[in-house]
């Protein structure tokens, strides 16, 4: 049995709920089993928000927060730097050899101590300037979530682009989607930006594909020059 437990952490308004929905839908279209659920407080923009996606070849029973993820997606640097997250630190519970993908341009803002812990777990750390890719390709930062999904595919190939495309079409293609009031308002903004639905789907797919290319791995090893930061020994 192969099971992926994905935790998406970010800020309200960044589209984590939508991203999780699209990912879970795509997984079911690939013949996998998936459950998706969001977790948020009294919802408002820029407050911490999380989404959980479980994808498996076998039935999934566990509900609620993913406490022991093997994939963590960080949609906003504040999750790391300001602790806008439901776990402390942001990677709490990460399984050995887990994957972390951070939306960042340049520095990730992860302290040396945390990097060492991640290294000890055998984790792999990736970054993607998701917001920049979204603005560049789709001309809107509202596609940041799509870029994050693209980066995930770039790293894991967890679902196919074909299924993702179908899921995006279903999500934005006019079928009634249960969204909170705030999400519905953002949908309207999007609809105004993309007059043709096909154009919206194409743009989203282009963002995902660009992000899949742009995602970069970061070394968790300590810089050689400083040597081991605990004992100070070189080499």
């Amino acid at each position: 049995m192969k099971r992926s437990l994905i935790r998406m952490s970010g800020l309200g308004g960044q589209g984590l709920v939508t991203a999780a929905h699209i990912l879970g839908t795509a997984a079911t279209k690939d013949g996998l089993v998936s459950t998706v659920n969001p977790f948020f407080g009294a919802e408002k923009r820029l407050a911490p928000a999380e989404s959980y996606v479980r994808i498996s070849t076998e039935p999934i029973h566990q509900r609620g927060e993913v406490l022991f993820p093997n994939i963590i997606m960080i949609f906003h640097p504040h999750v790391i730097t300001l602790g806008k997250c439901y776990t402390m630190p942001f990677f709490d519970g990460l399984q050995p050899e887990g994957i972390i993908i951070v939306n960042a341009e340049g520095e990730l803002g992860i302290g040396r101590e945390d990097l060492d812990k991640l290294a000890a777990l055998g984790a792999r750390l990736y970054s993607i300037p998701a917001t920049a890719v979204a603005v560049e390709v789709a001309e809107t930062e509202l596609a940041t979530n799509m870029a994050m999904l693209g980066a995930l595919i770039g790293v894991t190939r967890i679902v196919t682009f074909a299924s993702l495309r179908e899921a995006v079409l279903e999500r934005f293609g006019g079928a009634k989607f249960v969204a909170s009031g705030t999400t519905a308002a953002l949908d309207n903004v999007l609809a105004a930006k993309f007059t043709k639905m096909a154009q919206l789907v194409d743009k989203n797919m282009a963002v995902m594909e660009a992000a899949a290319e742009a995602v970069q791995e970061h070394s968790l090893a300590a810089p050689r020059k400083g040597g081991c930061h605990v004992c100070g020994r070189q080499g």
């Binding site: 929905h21 879970g24 839908t25 079911t28 089993v33 998936s34 459950t35 998706v36 659920n37 969001p38 977790f39 999934i60 509900r63 609620g64």
Partner: peptide, 12 residues
């Protein structure tokens, strides 16, 4: 039904 765990969770 348990709020969020069921109401907001997407499943088959």
């Amino acid at each position: 039904a348990d709020g969020f765990f069921v109401t907001h969770t997407r499943e088959m």
